[in-house]
Structures are given as structure tokens and as C-alpha cells.
Amino acid sequence: MDSENLENINQMLEQDAELREKIKDQVTEFDKKTRVMTGLLNKIHSTPTNQLPALLDSVQPVLYSCSDVTAEIADLVPANQFWRWKDTWCNSLRNAVFVATLIEFLRSESLMTIQQVSDILGIQPSWKDRFVLTAEDYLHGVISLVNELSRLAVNAVTMGDFEQPIKISNFVKDIFAGFSMLNLKNDTLRRRYDSLKYDMKKIEEVVYDVSLRKLAPSTRDA
């Protein structure tokens, strides 16, 4: 190999290796943040409904701080290389989507859009060749949300909140109907979508238990 050719190639390989290291460091940071948030949010299963706002307030600042990390990553990724590196951080990002949409549901019973999540994570339109929230990552986060809510429906009842399951049921039915309109290929997303059916069945059974026994005010009159 002539030396210029070789040097050229070696330089490319080394730059990549270095960059990979740097991005990995930022992803570790991102991962830590999402781990802290999911750790805190894990308490929703044992926190009475009226104390939820305080819990959510404690998570919010960490969520906002994620924009630091997304900015760092966007800074590192060379122009046009979003698709090269995205697998590195997609797990953290999906977890962040999960956190953001969970907080929003608990606050307002509504589903945060992909744009709103992007904004909250500080993702800039100008980064579009370096750091984007893709539909796929957003949907993965939303499925995790549903998985968690089916667990919450159960635990809310244990804590004596009989209305939460009904809210969850309505919310999840909507999401499920949405998903069933999407043309998903036979991949991970499709498999996880299939798992939604179990979540929904479980939630329906909780609502059944509550309404059969006329425990929730809304069902007591039924």
C-alpha cells in the first residue's frame, strides 16, 4: 500500500475510534440521567395519587437537564452522520421519551406528541443531520409507557385509587387504536406492539374488577 493511501485510511479509522469514545462518554451521561429519572418514577407505584405532583416536580428538572446532553452529542456528531451513531444513544433516548410522556400523562392524562418530546429534550431543528428524535424511537418510548401504566393500574387500586385505572384504560385504548392504524413491519416495534394487547387486557380486567364492585365513583352509578 502506498503510504499516503495508508495514512489517509489510518487517520479515518483513528478519528472514528476517538469520536466513538467521546460519544460513548456523553451517552453514559445521558444514561445516568434517565436511570435517575426512572428510579424516581418507580415510586409512582407506591405513592398516593395526591402526592404524585410533588414526585413529578422532583423529576422535571432532571428531564430538562437532558437538553445539555443532547446538545453535547449533537455537537460531537459530524455533519450527516446521525444515522451512523444513533444506535449508540437510542436506548437512552427511548427512556427519555418514556419519562417525558409518563410525566405528561400523570399531569394531564394526555399523550405528548413527538414534537413536544423533541422540544422538551432541547432537540433543535438545525441538528437534523446530527441528532433527531425518530418516529421509531418515539413509538418505543410510548410502548414502554403503556407497559408501565398497566402496572400502575394494578398498584393504584391497591393504594385505594379506583379512578386511575379508568383513566389509564381510556388513555391506553386510544393509543392502541392509534398503533393499529400504523403499518408496522415485522420488526422489534411490531413485536412490542403485540405485547400492548396483554397490557390492555390486564387494564381491562382491573377496570372490570373496579366496576363490578362499584368501587369507583364513576362506576358506582352504573
Binding site: 394494578v154 387500586v157 391497591t158 393504594m159 379506583f162
Partner: peptide, 13 residues
Amino acid sequence: EDATYAIAVRTSE
């Protein structure tokens, strides 16, 4: 959790 849920539902009635 499912088991404690079942208890809660029963006693609530």
C-alpha cells in the same frame, strides 16, 4: 403486586 391487588379489591368490597 398482582396478589396484593387481589387482596385490596376483595377487602374494598
